[in-house]
């Protein structure tokens, strides 16, 4: 009898990746943000799903996001290989074959959309399909390598999950869903450009036309300030809709003050100063941007509790009639 083990020592091929490698293909960190924002979209909606339906909706929205992540890794393997931050991803590291990433991404895309349709409604499934298409085709295949405004438009893909969550529960799009979308959409540019300020060499090596590469750091700092100033009113207006309230307003006011101050600081900084302290302020602003988004959505979730409703009634908080 021949032992096949003797022939495979140290050799791996297609299909020999570990389970964890396939999980990495789905970008679990991005998925966690999607799960959180989609869950908030479901929680704050005026219509409540059966808990199992809500769980299914969250799982399939996350799966759709993971599928678009796999498609992104399949397409971007060449530039991921060049960038230090992404070189260890499953496809550029050789753990997973590009065709496997494509197959997994495409099949999970179809599965997640069909299952979300069956679990909730056609509009939510359609929005999820559009989100996957937007991220995989519009952003990854087209905008990312062709324009410095790539993340501005591409940011829409990351902004859809709370809207999909809301639509899964209600079956329709309303001002609240649009504001949650706009909050992430307007937040994405300052968040990624702050990252680009201190990861510039990576994008330059990969020839990705990030704003820092095409227009320089000065212009990027200007853009960060402008988008941060545009973001603040969007975030604050949400306080006067059915998903907002006094707690959200207080949280949002503090966070936007900090964010605007941070953006002003970045705008005032000279490159020599930033290089001298190894982009400490830029890294702080990036960390603040993560807290900014998390706390805004956490505040939405808190406003959906009975205690927050009681507080709103107590202080006489009213939603704006013009919204």
């Amino acid at each position: 009898m021949t032992d096949i083990r003797a022939d495979i020592a140290g050799q791996t091929g297609p299909g020999d990746a570990s389970f964890g490698d396939y999980v990495q293909l789905l970008k679990p960190r991005v998925m966690s943000l999607v799960v959180f924002t989609a869950l908030v979209g479901l929680i704050v909606a005026p219509v409540h799903l059966h808990p199992v339906e809500a769980l299914a909706a969250i799982i399939f929205i996350a799966l759709g996001a993971g599928a678009s992540g796999a498609l992104n890794m399949w397409w971007d393997a060449d530039i991921d290989r060049v960038m230090r931050r992404t070189a260890k991803r499953p496809v550029p590291s050789g753990a997973v074959e590009p065709g496997e990433a494509l197959g997994l991404g495409a099949s999970l895309s179809v599965l997640s959309v069909v299952m979300l349709w069956l679990a909730t409604n056609a509009l939510a499934a359609g929005l999820l399909a559009f989100t996957i298409f937007f991220y995989a085709v519009i952003y990854t295949m087209w905008l990312k390598r062709s324009t410095p405004q790539n993340i501005v438009i591409g940011g829409a893909a990351g902004a859809f999950p709370p809207m999909v969550g809301w639509v899964a529960a209600t079956g329709s799009i309303s001002i609240e869903a649009v504001l949650m979308f706009l909050l992430i959409f307007m937040w994405t540019p300052p968040h990624f450009w702050a990252l680009a300020l201190f990861m510039n060499s990576d994008y330059e090596k990969a020839k990705v036309p990030m704003l820092t590469v095409t227009h320089g750091r000065r212009s990027t700092r200007n853009h960060i300030l402008v988008y941060t100033l545009l973001l603040a009113p969007v975030a604050l207006i949400a306080a006067f809709t059915s998903i907002g309230g006094p707690i959200y307003f207080a949280v949002s006011l503090v966070l936007n003050l900090l964010f605007v101050i941070g953006a002003f600081r970045l705008w005032m900084r000279r490159e020599e100063r930033a290089e001298a302290d190894k982009y400490a302020a830029e890294k702080r602003f990036f960390a603040l941007s993560l807290a900014y988004l998390f706390l805004h959505f956490a505040a939405f979730a808190v406003e959906a509790t009975p205690w927050a409703h009681a507080l709103s009634t107590y202080v006489g908080w009213e939603t704006a009639s013009w919204l």
């Binding site: 083990r5 495979i8 050799q11 791996t12 020999d16 990746a17 570990s18 389970f19 396939y22």
Partner: peptide
């Protein structure tokens, strides 16, 4: 040597589970 588990088998087992 004939019965030794290769790392690849562990990986496949993990993936199957």
């Amino acid at each position: 040597a004939l019965t030794r588990e290769h790392e690849l088998h562990k990986r496949r087992q993990g993936r199957n589970i």
